[in-house]
Amino acid sequence: MKTVIKERIAEVKTKRDAGWKILILLSTLILIFILSFALGRYPVPPGQLLEVLASRVFPIEAHWNATVETVIFQVRLPRIFAAILVGAALSTAGAAYQGMFKNPLVSPDILGASAGAGFGAALAIYFSFSMLGIQMMAFVGGLLAVGLTYGISLRIRHDPMLALVLSGIMIGSLFSAAISCIKYIADPYDKLPAITFWLMGSLASITTRDVYMALTPILFGCILLYLLRWRLNVLAMGEEEARVLGINTGVMKTIVIVCCTLMTAASVSISGMIGWVGLVIPHLARMIVGPNYRVLLPASILLGGGYLLLVDDLARLLASMEIPLGILTALIGVPFFLYLLLNSKWGWK
C-alpha cells in the first residue's frame, strides 16, 4: 500500500505541474510587487497607484500630489527592483552552487564573496569614499576574494571540490578578520557605525543608478546559468560522473564560479550583507519544483525575488525605525528553514 501511494506521489510530480507552479510563483511575485508600492510610511491607495503607473504609458492628466509621484518613482520603484534583483541573484547563485558542490547546505558566499565584498566596502568607508566608490570597492573585493580562493584551490592536490570549499572558508575567515581590523581602527563615532550598518545590509538608500549598476552582472549570470541548465543537472551528480558523461568539468566549474561571484558581488555591493536567502530559497524551490535546473532556476529567481521584496517591506513597516534587512532575513530565514527541515519531505537525501 505504501509503495502504491509513493508511486502515485511520484506520478503527480510530472512536468506539466512544473509549468503551473512557475505560473503561480510568478503571479505571487507580481502580487507582492504591486502590494509593495502601496505599503509604506506614505500610503498610496491601489487605485491611485495604478493611475500613476499608467500615466507613464498613457496620457492621463496628473490630478494627484507631486509627492506621490516622487514616492513611487524615486523611492519605492528602485527599492522594489533592487529587492527583487538581489533576492533573485542570491537564490540563483545558491541554487547553482548547491548542485555543483553536491551539497544542499551551501550558500552563495561559500567561496568568500560576501566577506571580500564586505572588506572592500569597509575599506572604502574607512577612506571616506563616495557611495559609488564604496560599491565599486565592494564589487572588486568580492571578485578578489573568490579569485584568491579559486587560485589556491587549484594548487591543492586533493579532491578539487573539497579544496574549493576549504580554501573558501579560509579566505572568508581571513577577510572577516580584515573587516574586524578596519572596524577596530575606524573612528568610533563616525566610520565604525557606518561600516557596521553597511554590513548589516539594507536597501534603504537605493537609487535608480544602483539598480542599473547591479543589473548587468546579475542578468549576465542568470542568463548564462540558465543556458547551462542541463549541464548543471549533470554536474550535480558529482564531478567524476559529470566528466565521464562528457562534461569538461574544469571549464564548467569556472563558468559557474564566475557567474555566481558576479551575481553575489553585485548584490552585496548595493545591498550589503544579506544572509540566508541564498541558502533557504533554493531549498524551498527544490521542494516545490524538484531538482531539475530547467525549472529550479526560474523558481529560485521568482521565489528569491518575491521573498526578499516581502522581507524588505517588513523592514520598512515593522517598526518606526528601519530594521536592517540582513537581520530580518536571518530572523525569518533560520526558523523557516528549521520548520522546513522538521515538517516536510526533504528536497535531498
Binding site: N233, V234, A236, M237, G238, G246
Partner: peptide, 20 residues
C-alpha cells in the same frame, strides 16, 4: 550510489545523452 538530489529516473537516463 545515491546522489543528494531527487532527480527523476528519466532525467538521470537523459544525462547519458549529455555528450551528444
Amino acid at each position: 550510489h545515491t546522489p543528494p538530489f531527487p532527480f527523476e529516473v528519466l532525467d538521470v537516463v537523459l544525462m547519458g545523452r549529455t555528450a551528444h
